[in-house]
Structure formats: C-alpha cells, structure tokens
Write a protein that binds this DNA or RNA. Structure first.
Lengths: 110, 110
DNA sequence: TTATTTTATCTACAAAATAGAATTTTATTG
DNA sequence: CAATAAAATTCTATTTTGTAGATAAAATAA
C-alpha cells in the first residue's frame, strides 16, 4: 500500500469509528471490534492503527473532557475526515462491483 | 493477521478470481485488478498473494494446457476452495453489518 | 498521599504488500 | 536446429500493516 489505501484492519477501525460516532476512542473501538469480529483485539493494535490512519489524513482527533469515571487519561476521540470518508466509500464500491461480477460457479466447485 | 483473515489485497485477488473463473491466473488477475482499482499492480504482488492464499487453504491451483500463443510457461489457474468462499463471504457480511450500523453523521462533519 | 483504574504511548516483532530482477518454458524465425 | 523473443512463474529484498506486551500518564478513591 502506498499510503492511500486502507489495510484490512484499518478499514474495520474506520467503520467502527463511524458506528461509534461521536464517542469513538481507543477502548470503545477495541470493544466494538472485539464483539463484531470475534477476534481478540488488543488496545495497542487499535492505537497503532489509529495513529497511522491519522497520519494518512483519514482521521482527526480531539481530546475529550475528563469523565466522572474512576480514572484514566483523557479520552482521545477520533473523527473521519472528508478524505477518509471518500476513501472508505470507494473501497466499498469497488468490492460491491466485484461481487456483482463474480461468476457464481466459482463458489460451487468444492 | 493470524492466518485466517484476508488481507486487503488478498481479498481483491480472491474476488478477481471469482470474476475470472475459470480462467484466473497471474496475468489475467493482474489485468483485472489494474483496471478496476486504478492502481499500478505488479505481477509479483499478485503472485506473492496467490502463494499465500493457497498456503492458507483459500485457493487451489491447476496447470493449464499449453496455448497456441507465442511462448510462456503453462498458466497456473487458481480456484476458490469452499473454505475460501466461506471466509470471503464472512468478511463481506461483517462489513455490510458495520455499514448498516454506521452513524451517517460521521460522514458529514467536514 | 498512596493505591487503583482507565487510558494512551512506546518498543519490538510478524505478516502482508510492493518492486524489481532472475528464471523457466514455449513458439517463432532465420 | 540454433538463436531470439514472448509469456509466464519464481526469487530476493524492502516498506507498510498487523499484533503483542510492557510502560507511562492522568484521574478518582481510599
């Protein structure tokens, strides 16, 4: 990938942010994806991905106010940029088109 | 990835094989994806991906007969296994569900 | 003020994506 | 038949993504 494509996990992180908007931060994203994918996702995997996505211009972030919960650093909320939304939608469209053109026989041979 | 997930490019290669079935081999896959993605895809990228997908059990291959064209080694045709089809469909379903639950406002902030 | 909880950041390694060179096989041409 | 050209796969190396675990920081509770 040359920086303008979304990796597999990166795309899932972006979508989770869309689902959780406007309360998407490390832990909530991790929980959302753990539930949906059934994989054991670590917080650091999510954070590494968030950092890279922000660098690529797909995300912006903003620190939240301190909560009434027990502790913790301030949450860093993530938002999808216009560029990020465009990229995400293009990936979706391309796959939809491919699926539409798939020869169904290809799935019946085993 | 722990071996049971499809990478971003790997998924595109699988779908291209579905589209091209039963004539999917290195060059035809490369051409199909170059056209659809607009990226400059190299043959070696496709082959590396095919090799990994076959190792993971998502693809099978079979050498074709020699053609009447000028030259070249025999084409190695690739086919999607039942396991590959299942994996591909699961990835599709998970994304569809995420998209369904996306808060549309997340795409209107920029 | 010390401990506990919640969060983010850092460091390191594994796997996938990408690029380019090398090799193999086949057919054509002289 | 030897030399050349074409079509394809395979090899080698590097960068980018994915994953894990340890560490650090900030906030509240005790």
């Amino acid at each position: 990938m040359k920086g303008t494509n979304l990796g597999e996990f990166e795309e899932l992180v972006m979508l989770a942010i869309g689902v959780l908007h406007p309360k998407a931060y490390g832990v909530s994203i991790k929980d959302e994806l753990t539930e949906r994918t059934g994989r054991q996702i670590t917080l650091s995997a999510v954070h590494a991905s968030l950092h890279r996505l922000a660098e690529k211009g797909f995300l912006e972030s903003q620190f939240g106010e301190s909560s009434n919960k027990r502790g913790g650093k301030r949450k860093k909320y993530f938002f999808i940029t216009a560029f990020g939304a465009k990229t995400l939608e293009e990936a979706k469209l391309m796959r939809e088109q491919l699926w539409k053109d798939v020869n169904k026989v290809a799935f019946q041979n085993n």
